[in-house]
Design a protein around this nucleic acid. Sequence first.
DNA 1: GCAATAGTGTCTGTTAGACAATATGCG
DNA 2: CGCATATTGTCTAACAGACACTATTGC
Lengths: 242, 242
Amino acid sequence: MPESPEQSSLDSYNPKEFDTPIYSVDIAIFTLHEGQLKVLMVERNEYPYKDYWALPGGFVDLKKDSNINATARRKLVSKTGVDAPLLEQVSTIGNAHRDPRHWSITTLYMALIPYAPTAEFIEAVNEARWFPIEEIEQLQLAFDHSELLQLARERLKNKTAYTVLPIHVLKRPFSLSQLQKAFELLMDTELEKKSFRRRLLNADVLKEVGEGIPDGGKGRPAALYEPADGSENHLFVRVFGD
Amino acid sequence: MPESPEQSSLDSYNPKEFDTPIYSVDIAIFTLHEGQLKVLMVERNEYPYKDYWALPGGFVDLKKDSNINATARRKLVSKTGVDAPLLEQVSTIGNAHRDPRHWSITTLYMALIPYAPTAEFIEAVNEARWFPIEEIEQLQLAFDHSELLQLARERLKNKTAYTVLPIHVLKRPFSLSQLQKAFELLMDTELEKKSFRRRLLNADVLKEVGEGIPDGGKGRPAALYEPADGSENHLFVRVFGD
DNA sequence: GCAATAGTGTCTGTTAGACAATATGCG
DNA sequence: CGCATATTGTCTAACAGACACTATTGC
């Protein structure tokens, strides 16, 4: 950290208050599109890691942000153009080497969002792009963002097994088949149709809002659902897909 | 990035305007003693909140700590005299008002530790003290530490329902009855004896290491156990005590 | 009718809850 | 023996996995 600007004037300040690490937030924003789980990445245009892909993120704005969740939300909105139905903390990682310039700390968030409302905005600002998750896992990302992404991906998988998290990546209303597909992509495993339907329908987390043929356009029309009030917090007593 | 910390003017340093928040860690250290769940608190001897009880915690030492977990562990050891068998992150809280002096962020950890090895050390350094959890919930704590403690308490309760977390508050070896008591205190609920034994014995998380009468001293001798290798990570597919 | 998708019936296996019953130690 | 604690037996209920089956649409 010799190049850190704080270092030069350290002597004149109380080290206990002043010698503090750099703090930022990073967000893994997930969606579903073309039958794939995708994550939003931004291309860095500054050193270090210039031209590398990175998770969206940034520093706390002490004037604008009343808390760190607000920081995450502000960054999310600035990249996607809209708010996300799910934004939550995953973990905080801090060490001496993750940023070559500083001892630095980041709080990692994950967000889930339906693809549609973001598509146009993201096309317009060319620094951001949706990547299929398998594709991004091949690339070398900026800083420790490969590890951060891995952490978020794990959390996503785990929580999907005992919550209704995947409702947040779907446009409303949705059919049970679409919802099952969302569960399967987020968990990265196949689920048994009958078990899936029984579990969701018995849990009182969905309300039926009609019937129709979802976008694909073939076969028998499906019942369409929206999340019931408070369903976001539903916890199943047993994990699913084991 | 416009929000890069390098832009700040160090010459006119003012904690409230400096553009990076203050960062610290706080730890809720739990143990079991006298049939109660207890938490370690320290008395502040500086303003603000002088003479208030607070969670142990402190700032990252950029020289000593290679990462924030190391910061937490260092603080833990300095208060208890020993390392803890379980130390994990709960959540990170940051906002403009939790510390009256600064926009500040803390990463909250929780730790579990058997009572015995800590007792002597804590008696010797009079700034720290074990409080029964019910007692501390009545007191007004420093900063937002009541809320932090509440968060850690909730996490403890929730994780006990699908892991073997409570093995970390017991001295080894322990009997199943002692372990059940630990589960009950951490979850704050009574458990059914047969269900408890079946669950633990079928999960392959304990190894029998003998037989004896634990400290109480009455009744039939019990089989004694220690955690099996890797048992700390065991996840039950179903939550317990519902 | 056929293809494609939605939805159901039913059997099995696992595991928690309830609670009665039995076992082993000490005095 | 009687008390205290440990350990087991057994029935029931909830719910996931498996998989075959029926239902409804468009062509």
